[in-house]
Design a protein around this nucleic acid. Structure first.
Lengths: 191, 191
DNA sequence: GTCTATACCCAGATAGAC
DNA sequence: GTCTATCTGGGTATAGAC
């Protein structure tokens, strides 16, 4: 994998997030990387190939992110807090561009793009990681349902914060989410 | 307003929802209406003009919808149930295309399209209507916050159901939403 | 591996006949 | 009000020189 190639994927990742997949052209990516449009096709034959590479990159980044959280936080509850904290930390980006995973899935669904299942796999990575934490908290039978609930809540927050360009809303709703987690789990179990 | 014009707007409304704004071309709309591309410009000068007309149409439709709910249901709680029930009723469409309002706002935000504020006004219509119901339930000071919360929850449900093509998830989460409403409001107040 | 040049198509948009 | 014909720009994609 050449350095130019990974540069292309990094830039495409960013532009697909900020402008959307369809609205990002080869020329846009090439301009940022500092490449001619023609040379582009040495690295990627089609736009779908770039999308595949971007999704793959995001998979790797997500795994690194989740592993990092697992290292930094030692209890399941603290790890769930890391997930919620991500929304606050990424507030400015979410306000402008929404959630990278959610907005990509939304776009691909409308395009009836064959890569949609691969994009929603990014959700699945979070889903399984969150379910793991709930399992460790003793919700074995409801772990997946709770994980999906938490994901949905975060998606709703991102969509509304994006539509209304409202960062205060993120802070308020994430506090609500943390409160919900606390009512869910008896305090004794959180440490 | 000619009949052809309203036909165009109706078709554009549907296609913008199903395929997205950018991915829908004049030719697509003209083909469905049974019009030549050239004649299109007699009715609309630019694509943005069509978008404006579509948003306006949706505003009218939303007002009719909300008025209808207010007529059918006579207590605030029943009216909130109508809102939640809409998600179940529109389950198949949501699964395939997401929420019409949420996905439009998401797309326009990425395009940095000047019509975004007008599109999010559609959210505002729901927001105010929902806040009205919460006010009538005695949550005057928190009515808007609760309305936004309910909207965000519904957006999250739509995004996840769309990404995973999962209608069962809609049913489960809407039941959770109804349960949440019941814990929020003492039973004595719901009638 | 990178470039220029170019083919090709489809989009939005216009002109003008009917 | 509707049509055909056409312009222009941008997009994806290819060929071939360096």
């Amino acid at each position: 994998m050449s350095d130019t190639r990974s540069q292309i994927v990094e830039v495409a990742d960013k532009l697909f997030y900020e402008r959307g997949y369809e609205h990002t052209s080869f020329a846009d990516i090439a301009a940022v990387v500092g490449l001619s449009r023609g040379n582009f096709y040495y690295h990627f034959k089609t736009k779908d190939d770039i999308l595949d590479a971007v999704i793959q990159l995001r998979e790797r980044k997500t795994e690194v992110l989740l592993d990092g959280w697992a290292e930094q936080a030692h209890t399941p509850m603290e790890r769930l807090d890391q997930f919620i904290g991500m929304m606050v930390m990424n507030g400015p980006q979410i306000r402008r561009y929404g959630c990278p995973v959610g907005t990509l899935c939304t776009e691909l669904a409308k395009l009836e793009h064959p890569a949609l299942p691969r994009a929603s796999m990014l959700f699945t990575l979070f889903r399984q990681w969150l379910a793991d934490q709930f399992t460790q908290l003793g919700f074995g039978d409801r772990a997946d349902v709770l994980a999906m609930h938490l994901l949905a809540r975060s998606q709703g927050i991102a969509t509304m914060a994006n539509a209304f360009d409202d960062e205060q809303f993120i802070r308020h709703e994430t506090e609500q989410l943390q409160a919900w987690l606390r009512t869910l789990v008896p305090t004794a179990l959180t440490n």
